[in-house]
Design a protein around this nucleic acid. Structure first.
Length: 271
DNA sequence: GCGACAG
DNA sequence: ATCTTGTCGC
């Protein structure tokens, strides 16, 4: 698929001020509430037809997931000064397509400007993707961002695709309570703090810390992931969707597969 | 000046 | 993100 809003495609050669101005426009254009055409409850990592087949032999003969939403996981890997963008498309718990692209890096990692470094590889990979996704899961923040325009928001708005961001670290914002030793399934709201310049109120919920996995016992603890709305998804729904996609793992299945696919591309791309 | 800081 | 062996725990 191609960008629905070409004007929002990040320009790595722009000035920092131009980049930040673009992010404010993106945040103003983003929809941080549900606006998608599928049933969130139908999103799953499990192959529902495998379960159906036990009691319904019609599905056992010709498994079809045409009625299921297509969820894509997007991830990046790096080799020297090139970036690998990898996309894995899921439908009904089954991989239906994979796409990737390798592009030269033109911009360094700067907290708050991640999309200007990684968008090239991501958008190039999306152009090679044939299926039309219903939802994209990005590895990074969405609304949890200084200008509420993190990678998931920037890509979601540019492609006009429902998107959520899943980050392993917190960029900004304030957890409403301690994130130590949370039990599995617990979510803690992340509210805007002074570093979030676009938020109307400090106290605006910009995302959730979600404990997708936790050890039953022992002295070791797993950290939560930070889920935030990217585009056309509300904060609560974003957390609901990510929870459904994790199934016992810390990260969503589409993200884990995109991650290993990116590594696979990196291995085989020796030239 | 000090601390924080997605990938 | 990336460079990397062993190791603790289920």
């Amino acid at each position: 698929m191609e960008p629905a809003r070409p004007a929002f495609v990040p320009d790595p050669s722009a000035s920092r001020e131009t980049m930040e101005t673009l992010q404010r426009e993106i945040a103003a254009t983003a929809t941080f509430s549900d606006d998608f055409g599928f049933d969130p409850a139908a999103v799953s990592t499990a192959d529902t037809h495998t379960l159906d087949a036990i009691t319904d032999d019609r599905t056992a003969t010709s498994p079809s997931h045409d009625d299921q939403p297509i969820v894509v996981g997007v991830d990046q890997a790096f080799l020297d000064d090139r970036a690998v963008g990898a996309i894995v498309a899921f439908r009904g718990g089954e991989v239906i397509e994979r796409a990737h692209a390798v592009v030269d890096l033109e911009f360094p990692y700067v907290p708050g400007l991640l999309s200007f470094r990684e968008a090239g590889a991501i958008l190039a990979a999306f152009e090679r993707l044939d299926v039309e996704p219903d939802l994209a899961v990005f590895d990074g923040s969405g609304r949890i961002h200084y200008r509420e325009a993190g990678l998931a928001t920037h890509m979601g708005v540019t492609l006009d695709l429902p998107a959520v961001g899943v980050a392993k670290g917190l960029l900004c914002g304030a957890p409403q309570r301690s994130l130590d030793d949370l039990s599995e399934g617990t979510r803690v709201a992340i509210t805007a703090d002074d570093s979030v310049e676009t938020a109307d109120d400090t106290d605006t919920v910009i995302g959730y810390a979600l404990q997708t996995r936790q050890y039953d016992s022992g002295n070791r603890y797993i950290n939560p992931v930070y889920v935030s709305a990217g585009h056309r998804v509300g904060s609560e729904t974003a957390a609901d969707l990510v929870e459904r996609l994790c199934n016992g793992y810390k990260l969503p299945e589409p993200t884990r597969l995109a991650d290993s696919y990116a590594d696979e591309v990196k291995r085989d791309h020796d030239d």
